[in-house]
Amino acid sequence: MSQKPDWLRPHGSPWTRGAEQMVYDNPWIRVSHHEAVAPTGRPAQYGLVSFKNLAIAVLPLHDDGTVTLVGQNRFALAGYSWELPEGGSPIGEDPLEGAKRELAEETGLQAREWRKVLQVQLSNSVTDERAVGYLALGLSDAVGRAQGDDTEELALVRAPYREVLDAALAGHMEDMLTVAMLLRAYHMAREGALPDALTRAMLS
């Protein structure tokens, strides 16, 4: 990873947190209300959604330049979503182990090579959720069948990388981690950071 440029240094004063009230708590998230002082010095109130897992995304990139995607109905926006294999890794767990588990559980695949290629904040105005993304290469079938948890009804499709990228850029796939990972892989291919044969298969 390259050195952080000087212009990315913090400016101004940070937020100051005061009294906190827990509003809601379950095994996955915690919602809290905060009295605070803004960087401008003005008093403020803030609602924060805290996550108990690190978000994980895996881009399963096959040697022939195809990608395995997962389709499922999502509750929050009441719609169907085609996206990369994704899930949560408990805070404190090695996120690579979480990525391997999610790939096997959702697709039935395992990978010979793993590369951490993305680290992002998902919605830092109202949540503290962070995410990491892995590129999974050298794919083969894992032992056992793919299966989600008892609330998931998953479908799988394997499609050419370029078609998947074009679908995402056209707005047909809106999951942010999926879009970010597909663009990251495109950048890596264009910059020569992937094997030549794989790059040709992806971009053809």
Score class of each variant (00 low, 15 high):
residue 38 A to I: 05
residue 41 G to D: 08
residue 28 W to Y: 12
residue 194 L to G: 02
residue 124 N to Y: 02
residue 193 A to Q: 15
residue 177 L to F: 05
residue 62 H to C: 01
residue 53 N to W: 02
residue 21 Q to D: 09
residue 68 T to Y: 02
residue 149 D to V: 03
residue 105 E to L: 10
residue 133 G to E: 03
residue 181 M to L: 15
residue 108 G to P: 10
residue 184 R to I: 02
residue 191 E to N: 12
residue 192 G to W: 09
residue 67 V to D: 00
residue 140 S to W: 08
residue 22 M to E: 15
residue 7 W to T: 03
residue 84 L to D: 00
residue 115 R to P: 01
residue 185 A to K: 02
residue 199 T to S: 12
residue 191 E to W: 06
residue 35 E to N: 14
residue 147 Q to K: 13
residue 37 V to D: 03
residue 60 P to M: 07
residue 41 G to H: 09
residue 2 S to R: 13
residue 169 L to D: 13
residue 24 Y to V: 04
residue 54 L to W: 01
residue 132 V to F: 04
residue 176 M to Q: 12
residue 101 R to F: 05
residue 135 L to A: 03
residue 34 H to I: 04
residue 80 Y to E: 14
residue 179 V to S: 06
residue 99 A to V: 04
residue 131 A to E: 04
residue 52 K to Y: 01
residue 104 A to W: 00
residue 145 R to H: 13
residue 154 L to F: 11
residue 68 T to F: 00
residue 69 L to V: 09
residue 179 V to G: 06
residue 130 R to Y: 06
residue 158 R to Q: 14
residue 29 I to E: 10
residue 98 G to A: 07
residue 162 R to M: 14
residue 193 A to Y: 05
residue 99 A to K: 01
residue 154 L to E: 09
residue 124 N to L: 10
residue 96 L to F: 07
residue 54 L to M: 12
residue 3 Q to G: 04
residue 65 G to D: 04
residue 146 A to K: 04
residue 123 S to L: 15
residue 4 K to Q: 08
residue 53 N to V: 03
residue 173 M to S: 03
residue 187 H to T: 11
residue 65 G to C: 06
residue 92 G to S: 10
residue 132 V to A: 00
residue 117 V to K: 03
residue 25 D to E: 14
residue 79 G to E: 15
residue 88 G to L: 06
residue 70 V to G: 01
residue 44 A to M: 11
residue 66 T to W: 01
residue 188 M to L: 15
residue 47 G to H: 13
residue 18 G to L: 14
residue 10 P to T: 07
residue 34 H to V: 06
residue 68 T to H: 00
residue 103 L to R: 00
residue 177 L to D: 01
residue 62 H to F: 09
residue 63 D to M: 06
residue 149 D to G: 08
residue 166 D to K: 11
residue 192 G to Y: 10
residue 150 D to F: 14
residue 122 L to F: 05
residue 34 H to Y: 15
residue 129 E to R: 15
residue 186 Y to L: 14
residue 138 G to R: 08
residue 37 V to Q: 13
residue 77 L to S: 15
residue 5 P to Y: 08
residue 105 E to P: 03
residue 59 L to T: 04
residue 41 G to M: 07
residue 74 R to A: 13
residue 69 L to I: 11
residue 98 G to E: 00
residue 36 A to N: 07
